[in-house]
């Protein structure tokens, strides 16, 4: 980086210390590097709200209008306790928040990495002194943030249609943090694995969305019986949707949130660790 200072060497010519200002071994420089990639990743979607924030807003207005306003009363029938005493719009709101967060967090990480690979500009990052962990943390954090922002937008749209009272703010915040982070971490794997843009579409449309739609977003678990209830309980999305729902209508939740939160947190740590290992090995990145 500079010519006026030199690499310290021992008698055999191998490096011992690095005394240069701004060298990557300094904590400040490491944080600057991490922040730069994180900032770059955030700017990429913040500057394109029509592509990133407007579509989920419009989609959810349609969901609330069709499922909530038009069909909601018919689904609820005359049972005041049908959805834990909440209206149908409030019941589906957490599920739609989860769907929006997951889709956007996953899509952001997978697209950003794959697009960078496709056009090879990810080489700017790969040839930089950023550590493998810093690279992964920046991509995951930026993508998770996009998921959280989209989740907040969907809450905002929901508030137009129904009043919302937060019953368990800790659980609400915790699930809204861990769910998009987990799927941002999955998105990194998707971005490394994809060989063309079709792969991204397949992952989002044919794996994530069906799981969410069958994850008790639009119906309570109590509406299912026998084998279907057992099968549904194998779907990890059920625990995510229930976790966020527990934050606003705990009466409508059949699955306790603590174990779900613990498992999701552990899974997130494991998937981020896998991301770091894949990047370290250069999977999909290095010849």
């Amino acid at each position: 980086m500079s010519h006026d200072t030199d690499v310290g060497t021992n008698g055999e010519g191998s490096p011992t210390t690095d005394s240069r200002d701004g060298a990557p071994t300094g904590l400040r420089a490491r944080l600057v590097g991490l922040w730069t990639l994180l900032h770059r990743e955030i700017l990429r979607y913040v500057r394109r709200p029509r592509n990133t924030f407007l579509p989920p807003m419009i989609t959810n207005v349609l969901y609330f209008t069709v499922f909530g306003v038009v069909l909601g009363e018919r689904i609820s029938g005359n049972d005041p306790n049908a959805f834990g005493g909440a209206g149908y719009i409030l019941f589906i709101l957490p599920g739609l928040v989860v769907l929006g967060m997951i889709s956007n967090a996953f899509e952001n990480a997978s697209f950003s990495i794959f697009h960078g690979r496709w056009n090879e500009y990810i080489h700017e990052v790969l040839t930089s002194p950023l550590s493998h962990t810093e690279m992964v943390l920046a991509y995951v954090a930026a993508s998770s943030l996009r998921g959280i922002v989209v989740g907040a937008i969907i809450w905002g749209v929901g508030l137009v249609f129904t009043p919302v009272t937060v019953a368990n703010p800790f659980y609400l915040a915790a699930f809204m943090l861990v769910i998009p982070t987990l799927f941002a971490a999955f998105g990194v794997i998707g971005g490394l694995w994809a060989r063309d843009f079709d792969y991204l579409t397949v992952m989002n449309q044919f794996i994530i969305r069906p799981l969410v739609f069958f994850g008790a977003v639009f119906y309570p678990l109590s509406a299912l019986s026998g084998i279907w209830r057992q099968v549904t309980l194998l779907n990890p999305m059920v625990y995510m949707v229930n976790g966020v729902r527990y934050g606003v209508i705990p009466e409508a939740v059949a699955v306790p949130p603590n174990r779900s939160l613990l498992v999701l947190t552990g899974l997130t740590v494991a998937v981020v660790a896998l991301d770091v290992e894949l990047v370290r090995r250069g999977y999909g990145l290095v010849d």
């Binding site: 980086m1 990557p24 420089a29 490491r30 600057v32 730069t36 500009y121 930089s128 002194p129």
Partner: peptide, 27 residues
């Protein structure tokens, strides 16, 4: 400076350079 053009297409070129410097720990 590689033979193939592998440059970030999302940002104006001055920002691409700022990012590159930032990755090297430059404020």
């Amino acid at each position: 400076a590689p033979q193939e053009f592998n440059v970030d297409r999302f940002f104006p070129i001055i920002e691409v350079l700022e990012h590159k410097a930032g990755y090297h720990g430059i404020g």
